[in-house]
Amino acid sequence: MPAVLALNIARTTVPVGYAREGATGIDKRPVDGPLEVRAPGAKGTAGSGVAGDAIADVASHGGDHQAVYAYAREDLDWWQAELGTDLRNGRFGENLTTAGIDQTHALVGERWRVGTALLEITAPRIPCRTFAGFLGLTGWVKRFTQVARPGAYLRVLEPGQIAAGDEITVVHRPEHDVTVELFFRAVLTDADLLPRLLDAGDAVPPEVIDLVHKRTAVS
């Protein structure tokens, strides 16, 4: 049964030289739950959807469509073997380290019941210089992009509480074929895929819908 292996937050932001805002909340660590998750508000004015989780760059992270970030333990294990280094739960800045569920091929708009909360997949994680700086890896953004195991952002449709050990139940899968991987490639490596993102409707973050219209003149 798919489950939450670890629930991770950053209790405070940490000053660093590699982050745009001069600080970061990417260093998330496992905590005892449960913690409340809720829709935090519009991007740019709100932070994380997980109670107690600190975010420094609210222009790029957090907000309703990036309320919770999930990454699969299976993908962390794959990277662990590739990089030859230990990757603990939370090392990629994820709020939920999951087990037994394929996020790369999950559908945008797919809904998960986790604990007492209802979450909906909205987008992949887009790598940035803070991510690379935190891991201390040269060429990390390019490498992460090529491999395309980005993890998934989720919005909170029904607030609730989540704890490590909670089962993840897929309660809805939309009829389109817009996967997290397709979304990732459309934005970063294959602009011809961009119009397909509109098939996922309002699960897609508004700024990405605007990007699709701008780049493709689709209306």
Rank of each mutant, 00 (worst) to 15 (best):
G47L: 00
G47M: 01
G47T: 03
S48G: 06
S48L: 05
S48R: 05
G49L: 06
V50S: 02
A51G: 07
A51V: 12
G52D: 12
G52A: 11
G52K: 05
G52P: 08
D53C: 13
A54K: 05
A54E: 10
A54M: 07
I55G: 03
I55V: 15
I55H: 04
A56K: 06
A56Y: 09
A56C: 08
V58M: 12
A59Q: 15
S60V: 12
S60W: 01
S60D: 10
H61N: 08
G62V: 03
D64M: 11
H65T: 15
H65M: 07
Q66K: 15
A67E: 13
V68R: 02
A70S: 15
A70I: 07
A70D: 06
A70N: 03
A72H: 08
R73Q: 13
R73K: 10
E74K: 02
E74W: 04
D75Y: 03
D75A: 01
D75K: 01
L76P: 05
D77T: 14
D77R: 15
W79L: 12
W79K: 11
Q80F: 02
Q80H: 05
Q80E: 15
A81Y: 05
E82G: 00
E82I: 09
L83A: 11
L83T: 05
L83Y: 03
G84R: 11
T85M: 14
D86K: 10
R88Y: 11
R88G: 03
R88M: 04
R88P: 01
R88L: 03
N89R: 02
N89D: 15
G90R: 00
G90I: 03
G90F: 00
F92L: 14
F92G: 00
G93Y: 00
G93F: 00
E94V: 03
E94G: 00
E94Q: 02
N95W: 01
N95S: 01
L96Q: 00
L96P: 00
L96S: 03
T97E: 01
T97W: 04
T98R: 01
A99K: 10
A99S: 14
D102A: 12
D102E: 13
D102F: 06
D102S: 10
Q103L: 15
T104C: 09
T104Q: 13
T104L: 10
H105A: 10
H105R: 12
H105E: 15
H105C: 05
V108C: 05
V108Y: 01
V108D: 05
V108M: 01
V108T: 11
E110M: 08
E110K: 04
R111V: 14
W112C: 10
W112G: 10
W112I: 14
V114N: 10
G115P: 13
G115K: 11
T116H: 11
T116D: 15
A117S: 14
A117K: 10
A117C: 13
L118G: 08
L119Q: 12
L119M: 12
L119F: 13
E120K: 09
E120V: 14
I121P: 02
I121A: 14
I121K: 02
I121L: 15
I121H: 03
I121S: 06
T122N: 07
P124I: 13
R125L: 03
R125T: 08
P127M: 09
